[in-house]
Amino acid sequence: MSAFRVEVRVMPRAALLDPQGQAVEHALHALGFGDVAQVRMGKHLVLEVKAATRDEALARARAMCERLLANPVTEDYDVVVGGGAAR
């Protein structure tokens, strides 16, 4: 059993309006960053998951996303399991 550092990225569905991303994009344009487009904003969660293997940690994190961390109606997620044990 070791502890894996798991990072979860939750983003609003691509097809859905993301007003926060748009507001940030407008602010960047106003600051002179005219080269930016398609800004979207989501959530980044960092978890420490105890598991026997990397795959098990990944499977557990995915289950957490399905159950609570992401809403399948409005959001997409992806999961990255960090290298080795976290502490």
Binding site: L16, L17, P19, V73, T74
Partner: peptide, 17 residues
Amino acid sequence: LCEAGLLPGGLMRNARL
């Protein structure tokens, strides 16, 4: 109710924030 799956859909941030 939407989060619980007792109603379809979900509620997101107001379009004009």
